Computed example of a mutant assay.
Amino acid sequence: MQPMKKQFIVDTNVLLEDPKALLQLRNGAENDVFIPYHVLLELNKFKKDPRLGHIVSRVVALLAEHPDAFRILKAERIAEAFSSHVDNFILDEITASGIEKPILVTNDKLLQLQAASKGIDSEAYKESMPFKSEAEYYTGFTDNGTAPIANSFRWIEGRPVFHGPEGEKVVSYQHKAWGVTPRSVYQNLALELLTHPAIDIVSIQSEAGYGKSFLALAAALHLVLEKKSHQKVYVVKPMYEIGQKLGYLPGKVEEKMEPYTRYISDLIMKLHALRPANRLFTNPDVYPPQFDIKRFELLPLAYIRGMTIENAVVIVDEMQNLSRNETRALLSRMGEGVKCFCLGDTRQIDNPYLSQENNGLNWVVKKFKGSDIYAHLVLKGEKSRGPITDLVIKSGL
């Protein structure tokens, strides 16, 4: 005897949390899936939301790709001016549908209670797969059995194997850059990419505390002051959070940026303590440090226009706050002899006009992935900058 088909009705929050929930619930053709008309209205509303619009686009694309995987419920009446009581209209659609034993799938606990009051069964969607940007989804590793991507890694017998410009090799050695010893295998692989002479642009994605800025600065000092393969270090930071206030701050550009780049100065001083980097400073005994602009310079994004950068290491920090146009304008400034490090976390976006998918870091991964001069890595590990940060990451705060 075949099990009876389940009749699932999907709420908006489920589709936004996991656009593929529709197919998961249908499970081939085992169950029937319905979408209330008011859910479509909610999706239409959210498509203009800068934080949700890209996810709505994925939901709509999946619906268009699988038109036979669901049916739309009819609405006897439409919520006026799209009121805040739209949940009541969704429940009315279910009641009027005549579906036998409908199950409303929603993660909204209040809606679950409302459904129960009308005799409608409900359950939470437990297999939620939160949206991941390309910068998170492509970790820099490829699966065994698939064609390797240029400058990617794979695990073979528990050891990381690098598919680099010289072919495949096991990374069984430990890097050290400007006195910095990697704290994890992922940090070691990051230094493999950051210091490789044939890789011109590297992007690093990670949550806070895994050391991407510290490693990038250590690699930059190694290349400029030790190997002398480059002449100067530039650190470019999008100043979006300052907005127009940047022009009203007193002093020179360095003084205007200082409150927003102090962490860079602190990291440089930490590296200076590990190994003296006197050539970076006009006076190494002054704090905040006064940098010799022949060797090290902090620049806001606005100052890049019109420049041609050559023979330098360029660190672009918090690249997730750059738009696609800003990213193009910045990277097109790079001339001969440039090594560029693009750092960021696509889940920590301050620019309200950008999303996890539509941001500079993610565009770099999407467009450059597979290039011979480009590499990407997602930093992770058991420990970050400290126990509190560890707890934040593990708890999902």
Rank of each mutant, 00 (worst) to 15 (best):
V33M: 12
V171L: 08
V338S: 06
F341W: 12
D285M: 05
S332W: 13
R58L: 00
S229P: 00
Y374M: 00
D32R: 15
E297T: 10
E254N: 06
K380V: 02
N151F: 06
G381L: 11
S323V: 01
S229G: 10
R183Q: 07
G53H: 11
T139V: 04
L193P: 08
V316P: 03
A198N: 14
C342Q: 04
L354S: 09
V364L: 02
G164C: 08
E318S: 11
Y303G: 00
Y263A: 15
L193N: 05
L301C: 01
S128K: 15
S213T: 15
L22S: 14
G251I: 06
Y173D: 01
R385I: 15
P3C: 01
L361H: 01
N351P: 02
L330G: 13
F153D: 06
V33I: 12
L221K: 12
S97L: 03
V171H: 07
V365I: 03
L40E: 03
F368C: 10
L25R: 08
M307Q: 15
I120H: 13
L62H: 01
D68M: 06
M319R: 02
P165K: 08
N359H: 05
T142F: 02
L377Y: 04
L193F: 09
A198Q: 14
G247I: 04
A135D: 01
G243D: 12
N27Y: 07
E93T: 00
Y186A: 09
T282D: 05
L41Y: 09
R324N: 13
K132H: 11
G344I: 05
E80M: 09
K380R: 05
F296M: 15
A218I: 04
K270Y: 06
I388Q: 13
L331A: 01
Q174F: 02
S206V: 11
A216G: 06
S395H: 09
Y260M: 08
Y138I: 00
L111Q: 13
L343A: 07
S371K: 09
E357S: 04
G360Y: 06
A329H: 10
P259R: 11
E93G: 12
S57N: 15
V180H: 01
E42K: 14
